[in-house]
Simulated assay, not measured.
Amino acid sequence: MYSLIRKMILNTTYRDKGHRPIINDLVGKPFSFIEIIRRKGIGSKRLVIEEVSPNLRPYMNLVSDINYANIELRPYGILIFINKGLSNYTWVVPYYQLVIYKMNCSSIHAQGRYVHFMVNKNFKESKSFFNKLWDAKINFDMKYNFTNNMDDF
Rank of each mutant, 00 (worst) to 15 (best):
S64V: 09
N67K: 03
I138N: 08
Y96K: 15
N24S: 12
N11W: 02
L98E: 08
K132Q: 12
I78T: 06
H109T: 06
S32V: 04
P94C: 05
S106G: 06
Y89G: 04
N148P: 03
N149E: 15
I71G: 00
H116L: 13
Y114D: 06
V52H: 04
I23P: 00
D152A: 10
P54K: 15
N70C: 07
F129K: 06
L98A: 09
G112I: 05
K132S: 04
Y144W: 14
C105S: 15
P94V: 02
G77V: 03
F146V: 12
V99F: 03
V99L: 13
I37D: 03
D25W: 03
N131M: 13
N139M: 12
I78N: 07
R20H: 05
F153I: 11
D25Q: 14
I34S: 07
Y114Q: 10
T13M: 12
P75V: 00
D25C: 05
T147A: 09
Y2C: 06
G85R: 06
K132M: 07
M8L: 13
V119R: 03
G43P: 00
I80V: 15
R57C: 05
V52K: 09
E50N: 07
R74G: 01
L79H: 02
T90C: 07
L4S: 10
R113T: 03
Y76E: 14
S44D: 00
N145T: 08
W91D: 04
W134P: 00
L62C: 03
F140K: 11
L4T: 14
S64H: 10
I34A: 14
L79V: 01
F146K: 14
S128D: 15
K40H: 08
Y14S: 13
H109N: 08
N122V: 00
E50F: 01
Y114F: 07
N122R: 07
K121R: 14
M8N: 10
I138L: 13
I66Q: 12
I80H: 02
S3Y: 12
Q111V: 07
F33T: 14
I34P: 00
N83A: 14
T147K: 12
I100D: 04
F130R: 02
P21S: 12
F130W: 13
I22G: 04
V92D: 04
G28H: 02
R39A: 01
G18A: 12
Q97G: 05
S87V: 08
E35P: 00
L26H: 03
L4V: 11
I23A: 04
M8S: 14
L56N: 06
L10C: 08
R38T: 00
W134F: 05
R113C: 06
P58M: 14
Y96M: 08
V48Y: 04
S64W: 08
E72Y: 09
I138P: 01
M142F: 08
K102R: 10
E51Y: 05
L4I: 09
V119A: 04
N24I: 04
N83E: 14
F81Q: 10
K45E: 11
